[in-house]
């Protein structure tokens, strides 16, 4: 029994330890965020990388998510004549859940992994040590701008995703499945409230924090050369995705 506990406990201990180190990095980031020099130029550059450069993938995933959702709910609702609810169901699902979560997952794959790889490479080639020797704090110079950019840009990307998702759903529902356009829109306005959108955006900001924090953490703790960088990149995607799903549940439980 004790042996079993040991066996099952070790990964758990490791996980808790890792979360502890991630929290420490977060605290240090927060403390550096309010100390000059403020790295606006780097923050803007990161906002471009996290935000602007992700618009393409977000447009595609958002649109198709909305489209497939319209298709699925239509077939479901048709069984009891509730086609008129397709629009509002779709809009609620997009703004509350699918917009924030899918956007965060896509950005994790694109941006979180790139952060881990970039900082990981800098770690193993001693560039982070070099920053330290030049009296520049790596958390302030590298981590803080990335996290700030992700927290700011994820809600923006999520709005885009919400919007094209609903537009995609409208296209499928109204143009292909011949739902009445007026009803489709009226039901959305009727049922979706501003709070649904806001809460979705708060989630998105939180996911932005998670994916950038984990990406940076895995990056600056990389050991073991090129192989280590590969490992850090993969682990950052896996850990971020898991934490996004877990926190999504709890955020939803608290908010709605």
């Amino acid at each position: 029994m004790i042996r079993f506990l040991e066996f099952a406990g070790r990964p758990l201990v490791f996980f808790v330890e890792e979360c502890g180190r991630i929290m420490l990095l977060l605290l240090s980031t927060i403390s550096w965020a309010f100390r000059p020099p403020f790295r606006f130029r780097i923050i803007f550059k990161q906002m471009e990388f996290v935000g602007v450069n992700s618009v393409g993938v977000v447009l595609i995933t958002g649109a198709f998510t909305g489209m497939v959702l319209a298709l699925q709910t239509y077939h479901g609702f048709k069984m009891f004549g509730g086609e008129s609810l397709v629009g509002s169901t779709l809009a609620l699902a997009m703004t509350r859940e699918l917009g924030p979560v899918f956007t965060a997952l896509m950005v994790t794959g694109r941006v979180g992994s790139a952060m881990a790889a970039e900082l990981g490479t800098m770690k193993v080639t001693e560039q982070i040590d070099a920053l330290n020797t030049m009296s520049v704090n790596p958390v302030q110079y590298l981590v803080m701008p990335r996290i700030t950019a992700a927290i700011l840009m994820l809600p923006v990307l999520t709005i885009i995703s919400d919007f094209v998702g609903i537009v995609g759903g409208y296209f499928v529902g109204v143009n292909l499945l011949k739902i009445n356009s007026g009803i489709f829109i009226a039901k959305i306005i009727d049922i979706v409230e501003l709070d649904d959108i806001y809460n979705g955006l708060i989630k998105a900001a939180f996911f932005g924090l998670i994916l950038s924090l984990v990406g940076c953490y895995k990056g600056i703790y990389t050991i073991g050369g090129a192989e280590g960088v590969g490992r850090a990149t993969t682990q950052s995607v896996v850990l971020s995705s898991i934490l996004i799903f877990i926190s999504d549940y709890f955020l939803t439980a608290v908010m709605f």
Binding site: E126, Q127, D129, A130, T133
Partner: peptide, 12 residues
């Protein structure tokens, strides 16, 4: 201080 690293550690 200034420091030259074994592999230069230039910012790539």
């Amino acid at each position: 201080f200034g420091m030259l690293f074994q592999d230069a550690a230039l910012f790539d």
